[in-house]
């Protein structure tokens, strides 16, 4: 009996352990090893921190790295700002069928592949695109307007792709807030703003943090949206990693970049949790 239970546990854990070790732990150990070696000749390597040093001495790498971090944080905040009212409406104000319909509407864009969705934005925003034409026909613009290939275009794309991942955890936490508690806030003299600040937001904090973590990581690691909407004007750190691996065949530097990105996202998530006084168990459990 005891042995059978043990066997069952092993069988259940096997897929998870395989997934964890084959796809996450082993590649990362290899990545770390690759990032720590330097090519000195044909087929000759030595261990050094040279790749990491290159990153810190080359301003382009450093700037792109910081830019990616700052813009990801900004995109996360923007998603939260837009997503919160949407989630509040779905969770607290909409009832019955409207509620599920609105929730479904948030999901609809995800039936289309990310590539097609991003192309949709290009059709809207490019020089010969719909918005440009509309502005011209209305007489608001003299010539064609290029709205692609800048930071704002990237931001629009990132917020759009991330919205669902913010709305879902927010709806879940807001739904668990009893209407009675909100009413009590008003009944005891609170205004709309103070009820939001003292009751709704503290209650929704686990949802806000878990949504923000997911959105932030998605933005930081996004490749498609910054490449297609940002073009050459707006570099994203993932593009640098891609070019090191694929274009320049410099796997050593690419691996170092990959590791730096992992460290960056870990540090920022940790900082976010400390700042809001939440723990990972509380937000993810």
């Amino acid at each position: 009996m005891h042995r059978e239970a043990k066997l069952g546990l092993i069988l259940l854990l096997t897929p998870f352990l395989l997934w964890l070790s084959l796809l996450i732990i082993i590649p990362h150990i290899d990545l770390l090893l690759v990032s720590l070696r330097e090519r000195v000749g044909v087929g000759e390597y030595k261990i050094s921190l040279g790749n990491y040093l290159t990153f810190f001495t080359e301003p382009l790498y450093m700037m792109t790295f910081l830019r990616t971090a700052v813009m990801s944080i900004f995109a996360t905040l923007l998603t939260l700002l837009i997503g919160f009212p949407v989630a509040y409406y779905i969770a607290k104000m909409a009832k019955g069928r409207t509620q599920s319909a609105l929730f479904l509407l948030c999901l609809v864009p995800f039936w289309v592949s990310e590539l097609v969705r991003t192309f949709g934005w290009m059709i809207l925003l490019r020089e010969t695109g719909i918005i440009s034409n509309l502005l011209q026909s209305l007489g608001l613009a003299q010539g064609p307007v290029e709205m692609l290939y800048n930071d704002a275009a990237i931001m629009v794309g990132l917020v759009y792709t991330s919205m669902l991942f913010m709305v879902v955890p927010l709806v879940t936490t807001l739904e668990s807030l009893p209407d009675e508690v909100v009413e009590a806030g008003y009944d005891l003299g609170g205004s709309g703003l103070s009820v939001l600040r003292e009751i709704v937001i503290p209650h929704a904090m686990p949802g806000i943090v878990s949504g923000s973590i997911v959105v932030f990581m998605l933005c930081l690691g996004n490749y498609l949206t910054p490449t297609m909407l940002g073009g050459k004007e707006s570099l994203w750190f993932t593009e640098l990693i891609y070019s090191q691996f694929i274009v320049r065949f410099n796997w050593e530097l690419g691996a170092a970049f990959g590791f730096l990105l992992l460290i960056l996202s870990s540090v920022i998530v940790w900082g976010m949790l400390r700042l809001t006084g939440q723990s990972l168990e509380k937000t993810m459990g």
């Binding site: 009413e183 806030g185 009751i199």
Partner: peptide, 17 residues
């Protein structure tokens, strides 16, 4: 929020936060 009337709710609605 401006009425001098307060309410004790069915499930009390204390603020858990």
């Amino acid at each position: 929020n401006k009425r001098h009337v307060n309410m004790v709710f069915q499930h009390l609605a204390l603020f858990p936060m």
